[in-house]
Nucleic acid binder design. Structure first.
Lengths: 242, 242
DNA sequence: GAGCACCTTCTTGTACACAAGTTTGAGTGC
DNA sequence: GCACTCAAACTTGTGTACAAGAAGGTGCTC
């Protein structure tokens, strides 16, 4: 079985205890932002959210503070909250850090004497005949995110993996736009395969180069379509609200 | 004038507004942990802190949640809070990530056509005759932390700098133990100087090697004395409490 | 004396009331 | 019509009361 959801322990399933209200609201709000139900720049109040979710302001504030620290929203002193406006430099910077962490992880993977178990999982997913490839865009987008996360996890540094996972989540909102065109899907399979093979052959420089090129390619695609997608998402939401 | 305190905007000085209670409690609690007034493993309750600080539980909870997300403390379900026990693997991992980020930053600095302004500040501090060197341990410890932070800041990626700053803060509690012996002070001046000179000469590989060796040296020192220091700090605190 | 059930106490989680401060717009003077 | 004043309506920040649940001690049973 392949772990797709990451290890972020949504609702304390490990202890069998139900998740807090604050925790649930945190995830709901974040999903609202990811799905453009809350658009960058949108303003709202704590009471809005509390009313909509049917809870008091207390857990809402807890969730908002967490989202604020992760820079998804910001508070205006005694004047409401708003979803953080889009900032392309911010995403560019995150892409850079992501590249740094992933190439460092890949280098380590090539230097480790025994291959990490996670690598086997990745091979089973990405090194498959063309006929067995997934074509569903949204699954593929999630799978791509997991590919990169698992590369870092395989390197064995939990803190590096945690930081990388946070970055991955932050850029998810624009990254999945990469998977709207079929050619990129095929390229993704190809490029992931090359990275994995290079790692298996312990060719650190080659693996890093492949990975860097792959991320750069994806970033270039995303750069082209982001603005357009963003505006159409906004237009859709506006139309729905009328 | 050299900026020593980082740019973490303690009390919204930019807007001239007084800081929140929660913000103040957050900083006080974190300082308590850094100064071993709160020891790893220590348990406490929200009411304890609220009473001690003379506020209600609300801002205390806000501060605690933030400290929890930064993994300084952890909550035990309906059973109080505790300072996160020491975990050496955790610090080792953070040291690794720090090294990755700093070497990447240095590489960029060597590749940038025009030198960053921050580098000039660093030269004025670290490339001085032996007679002008600081000897006060605690100032030097802070200055050392700023050296590494400014290296990353100079690379121009705000997110990378933010992540690095968070890591720096987390390892501060053990890192400053490096500055208890005079020989390390001299070595620090020497090693920082070498890194800066290599950057000025655009020798990326050499600069990275120097930096990596410097961090490794510091880490080795810290590894040796951490356990001892930790236990004596605990003993001191216990004696004070009697 | 040992083990177990129960109950008290204490802890966090949530709701709600009030305080402090910002925005907005109606109303007034000119 | 325009600028200004001022107050009402909101919004976040903080304090407080209550709910849900865990821990530990106490007394009872055997």
């Amino acid at each position: 079985m392949i772990e797709l959801s990451g290890n972020q322990q949504h609702g304390n399933r490990a202890t069998g205890r139900a998740e807090n209200l604050a925790e649930g609201i945190y995830h709901k709000l974040k999903q609202d932002i990811f799905d453009f139900r809350l658009l960058p720049g949108d303003r709202f109040t704590e009471s809005d959210v509390a009313g909509r979710m049917g809870v008091s302001r207390t857990p809402v504030r807890e969730a908002l503070f967490r989202l604020q620290r992760e820079s998804y929203v910001e508070v205006l002193y005694r004047n409401g909250w708003r979803v953080r406006p889009f900032n392309f430099e911010y995403f560019e910077n995150l892409y850079d850090v992501r590249t740094i962490l992933e190439t460092a992880a890949v280098k380590r993977l090539c230097e480790q004497e025994q291959g990490a178990a996670q690598l086997e999982d990745l091979k089973r997913i990405w090194l498959v005949p063309a006929s067995e490839r997934l074509t569903d865009m949204s699954s593929l987008s999630a799978l791509d995110e997991r590919f990169h996360e698992m590369l870092v996890e395989a390197a064995g540094n939990d803190e590096m993996a945690r930081i990388h996972r946070e970055i991955s989540e932050k850029i998810r909102i624009i990254r999945r736009l990469d998977f709207t065109k079929p050619p990129r899907v095929e390229a993704t399979y190809l490029e992931h395969g090359k990275v994995l093979k290079a790692i298996m052959q312990r060719r650190a420089d080659e693996a890093q180069m492949m990975l860097r090129a792959h991320i750069e390619e994806s970033r270039r695609e995303v750069r082209k379509i982001t603005l357009h997608m963003l505006y159409s998402a906004r237009a859709d939401a506006d139309r729905d609200a009328m």
